[in-house]
């Protein structure tokens, strides 16, 4: 690079630091991926060598991060139009679009190949499908086309526990499908509760959000509908081999609270919501954060009790 080329770069420095590349991998999303994949791996009935387990979780995280980088590459145009995303590495000018694409593709291939070598082909195939689903089906195709984009995007985020389970068992089972369904059904009420009390600028960017396309009342209805589906999945998961009394008590309490919260949100008008600064919507969003963490945490508790003859349904 010559001095002349430095002068023509878009940013003040024209050079990305390591942190900028790391931000490209969406670290916050990666933390959810790591946690749920780890639970999927640890609750499986087959033990895994700790180094193989650690490496597998890392490769799943890298695969998730790589799909985040490809998402930022494709969505760079709309990220420049929204306040929330203006500080991301590409819109802020720290990382070039081509660089993000190259990093995303390279890490995707590397993560899938390495997971296949470290664990098994099923886990690698699931990771490859997750990346494909998030980047092609969600980001490139459906995100800008349907207000159900959150539901579809949620599916991509729901795969990691299935991959973790596949690392240990080499297959798919009712337990791993229900763990997928738990995150899948949780995502819409979680995100739409947030959408009800934040003023996103998705409309400016041409992304159809349910609150804009179908209105806030329809969004409240959808939240309640998905909450019932979520409760059914959460209880069903408790009846499988990874559930048990501890999980079931936690699930019953949390789902009762979540249904109550969704019901309150469903019954309110926008005027009620404005009057108390969206108290019920904020409450439901906060509860949703604890909800997912505690459900997966309860599965871990059940698994950790099993060596002592406790945990599970005996």
């Amino acid at each position: 690079m010559t001095d002349a080329s430095i002068q023509t770069t878009k940013t003040e420095t024209g050079e990305a630091g390591f942190g900028d590349y790391f931000a490209l991998l969406k670290p916050r999303v990666m933390s959810l991926v790591v946690f749920t994949a780890l639970v999927g791996l640890l609750v499986a009935p087959v033990g895994v060598n700790p180094i193989v387990g650690l490496a597998s979780i890392l490769f799943i995280a890298v695969g998730g991060g790589a799909s985040g980088a490809l998402n930022m590459w494709w969505d760079a145009d709309i990220d420049r139009k929204m306040k929330r995303t203006l500080t991301r590495p590409i819109p802020s000018g720290k990382v070039e679009e081509g660089e993000a694409f190259a990093i995303g593709i390279t890490l995707s291939v590397m993560a899938v190949v390495m997971l296949g070598l470290a664990a098994n082909l099923m886990a690698a195939a699931l990771l490859a499908f997750t990346i494909f689903f998030y980047v092609v089906i969600y980001t490139m195709w459906l995100k800008r086309w349907t207000p159900q984009n959150i539901v579809i995007g949620g599916a991509a985020g729901a795969f990691p526990p299935m991959i973790g389970w596949a690392v240990a068992t080499g297959g798919i089972s009712i337990e791993s499908v229900l763990m997928f369904a738990l995150t899948f059904a949780w995502t819409p009420p979680h995100f739409w509760a947030l959408a009800l009390f934040t003023k996103g600028d998705y409309a400016n960017a041409g992304v159809p959000m349910l609150t804009v396309t179908h209105g806030r009342k329809a969004t409240r209805n959808h939240i309640l509908g998905y909450t019932f589906a979520l409760a059914a999945v959460a209880i069903a998961l408790g009846l499988t081999s990874v559930g048990g009394p501890t999980y079931m008590v936690i699930a019953l309490v949390l789902n009762a609270m979540f249904i109550k919260g969704a019901w309150d949100v469903f019954r309110r008008t926008d005027a009620d919501s404005e009057a108390d600064s969206h108290k019920a919507e904020r409450g439901l969003f906060k509860l949703s954060l604890a909800y997912l963490f505690l459900h997966y945490g309860a599965l871990l508790v059940e698994a950790s009790l099993k060596p002592f003859g406790l945990g599970g349904w005996g």
């Binding site: 990305a16 630091g17 390591f18 942190g19 900028d20």
Partner: peptide
């Protein structure tokens, strides 16, 4: 320059 710091952090990372 700030640019050198960024480049250094990238290399170390």
């Amino acid at each position: 320059h700030e640019m050198h710091k960024r480049r250094f952090s990238r290399n170390i990372g």
